[in-house]
């Protein structure tokens, strides 16, 4: 409770706080990229002494591969950013990812599809993306119409959708390799892999949506202060629905990009993806409480995590160590953010 302290009446013309970004805003937007640079330097230097590999860490092919590998979780994390800015969360993305992948691969084996030759590919993609949109819409409608917290709703759908995955093919993997598709997925255009292009395209579109459209503006407003948004005549529910459909679509897109190449999906695929996506989003500075965040910073968070995995592997650490380090860094970053935020808000309270 801050009571605004009366100012001396003599200076009523005084302007308010001069424009400067609070430290936390700088932190949110810039720091993750600083962290990425730091990682690059550290692993290049450390790699010289520790690595068993002959190639340098900063080798171009290595970096291009890194971008490609960050695409599946990255595309989901970008969607998660919007959901979290809006003040919600979606735990079902991993299951949506797996179910869309199954639809993608299995649909190409259906007799009428098989008869279509390569024309089956766009249709299979459509089926898979449609699956994602429908699953997302179910989440969105439930959150909107029941008012139940998104955490609970998507916790339920996470279990439910995963159940559907297992009902589809039991414990068996679903496989179908289409070589045209594999060629497409492995192609490189201007040096970047297909998956990387999808990642960057998603970044561009979502960045435009969040910074330039009414929907993006309202999503921020709802996440920041839902009551004020309602009082400004904004209909909260439809925005929720759109965002859940978006993240469903993106989870499916992520599956399409990944399984076009691999051609085989296990019923356990995509597990914990929701948590990795949330980790990347939070590292990028988006607030769990909603209202703040940026698509570009999430891309930074995604790359930072991938760099850590790859870098630690490069200098000889095993997977368990990698997870431990990422966990520690996540907590350290959030602690730092909190400190900066609290200081910032103290400064601003006049």
């Amino acid at each position: 409770m801050s009571q605004s302290t009366p100012q001396p009446i003599a200076s009523p013309v005084e302007a308010d706080t001069p424009p400067r970004k609070s430290r936390s805003a700088l932190f949110v937007q810039g720091a993750i990229w600083g962290f990425v640079v730091l990682e690059l330097i550290f692993f290049s230097v450390a790699g010289r002494f520790l690595s068993v590999s002959d190639t340098a860490f900063l080798d171009l092919d290595n970096m291009l591969l890194l971008l490609k590998q960050s695409a599946p979780i990255g595309i989901i994390a970008l969607g998660m950013t919007i959901i979290m800015i809006n003040g919600n969360i979606d735990l079902s993305v991993g299951a949506t990812f797996a179910l869309s992948a199954i639809v993608l691969l299995d649909s190409m084996t259906w007799p009428f599809m098989a008869a279509m030759g390569d024309w089956a590919i766009p249709l299979a993609w459509l089926f898979a993306l449609g699956t994602g949109v429908v699953l997302g819409a179910i989440n969105g409608l439930i959150v909107w119409k029941t008012g139940v917290d998104a955490f609970i709703v998507t916790l339920g759908s996470m279990l439910g959708y995963r159940g559907l995955v297992f009902m589809y093919n039991g414990e068996q993997p679903t496989s179908h390799l289409n070589w045209t598709l594999v060629d497409f997925a492995e192609a490189q255009f201007l040096g970047l892999h297909t998956a990387t292009w999808f990642l960057l395209g998603t970044v561009l579109v979502l960045w435009l949506v969040m910074t330039r459209t009414v929907h993006g503006r309202n999503a921020y407003a709802i996440g920041n202060n839902r009551e004020a948004a309602v009082n400004a005549g904004i209909r909260v529910g439809p925005h929720f629905l759109i965002n859940f459909m978006l993240i469903g679509f993106l989870a499916a897109l992520s599956a399409v990009v990944f399984y076009s190449e691999s051609g085989s999906v296990n019923p356990n695929d995509g597990m914990l993806y929701e948590l990795w996506a949330i980790t990347a989003v939070v590292l990028g500075g988006t607030k769990l409480s909603g209202g703040y965040g940026s698509i570009i910073s999430t891309l930074g968070g995604v790359i930072a995590i991938q760099l850590l995995r790859k870098g630690l592997g490069y200098i000889g650490a095993d997977t368990e160590t990698v997870n431990l380090v990422i966990g520690l860094i996540l907590i350290a970053v959030l602690f730092l953010d909190r400190q900066l935020n609290r200081k910032g808000s103290e400064e601003l309270k006049i």
Partner: peptide, 16 residues
Amino acid sequence: GQGLVLGMNCRDNMTL
């Protein structure tokens, strides 16, 4: 609590 989206800028609040 009810009138402003405090984290948004002045213009966006006014045109909300």
